[in-house]
């Protein structure tokens, strides 16, 4: 059965928006726990940027769906299986090295993706991408500086970041997983063809990792898939219960 373009775009926007929402929530978990005050603020700022992206994207997703759901409805009243975020963003925040490894892997792709999406024929999406691209660029800068300092820092920071990179690597195939929906949107010229993203991402990441005296993780390692089709790790449900409890307990609460 052919999927309508609006339905395909709805699905694509859920993937995009849920990535931002879930990672925003994970970063917010650092609030009050950052290694120093300045970094606490930096991570909270990035978290807020991501919530902003999520809100814009999920509102647009709701419009495409045409069932009257807005960003809040989509964020607070879906079950884990209906979330289309990649597995990488739902993993627990881990230590600071893990957070930084995830930030560089995710932000670099996000930046390249937003850059492509500024060319979307959907003007709202192109507009969101234009704004998000700028913020995303800063997220890359922030993570890159930390990768360099932790990688080329003490023996402990080097070991922790290398370990974290190896840990997050098995979710990278899922991060770039693509399917007929993206192909349809590209064929219909609604979004650009995203086939070139992975190569660009890998080259940029490789350069940074080498500069930070780290090594690239084993490319042959087991890769876990499933996020884009709603097959999540056990961590997402726990995270959502915390994210969703207030609006589910008091559906009309205002604050």
């Amino acid at each position: 059965m052919a999927t309508s373009n609006n339905a395909a775009l709805f699905d694509f926007l859920l993937r995009l928006g849920d990535d931002q929402l879930v990672l925003g929530q994970r970063l917010a978990e650092w609030c009050g726990h950052g290694p120093i005050l300045e970094e606490d603020i930096a991570l909270a700022n990035i978290s807020l940027d991501l919530f902003g992206h999520a809100q814009a994207v999920l509102n647009l997703a709701g419009e495409m769906e045409g069932q009257g759901r807005d960003a809040d409805k989509l964020a607070y009243f879906r079950e884990a299986i209906e979330f289309k975020n990649c597995l990488l963003v739902e993993q627990p925040r881990g230590d600071f090295a893990y957070t930084i490894a995830r930030q560089i892997v995710f932000s670099l792709r996000a930046y390249l993706l937003w850059d492509e999406l500024t060319k979307s024929s959907n003007e709202t999406l192109a507009g969101i991408a234009g704004k998000a691209k700028k913020e995303s660029r800063y997220h890359v800068t922030h993570a890159s500086e930390w990768v360099l300092r932790l990688g080329d820092g003490t023996a402990d920071s080097h070991a922790r970041l290398q370990n974290a990179l190896d840990e997050v690597w098995r979710f990278t195939k899922d991060l770039f997983a693509t399917d007929a929906i993206e192909q349809q949107l590209a064929d219909q010229k609604i979004i650009p063809n995203l086939g070139g993203l992975y190569g660009k991402w890998l080259t940029m990441l490789q350069e940074l990792i080498t500069k930070a005296t780290l090594r690239m993780p084993d490319p042959g390692m087991f890769m876990q898939l499933g996020g884009r089709t709603g097959k999540h790790t056990e961590h997402l449900g726990h995270m959502l219960s915390e994210l969703q409890i207030l609006p589910r307990s008091y559906p009309d609460a205002r604050w």
């Binding site: 726990h33 290694p35 120093i36 003490t154 920071s157 922790r160």
Partner: peptide, 14 residues
């Protein structure tokens, strides 16, 4: 603000 990370260095940050 310690806990999740090794923060010994931060005390020395200028």
């Amino acid at each position: 603000m310690a806990s999740a990370t090794n923060t010994t260095a931060s005390a020395d940050w200028p």
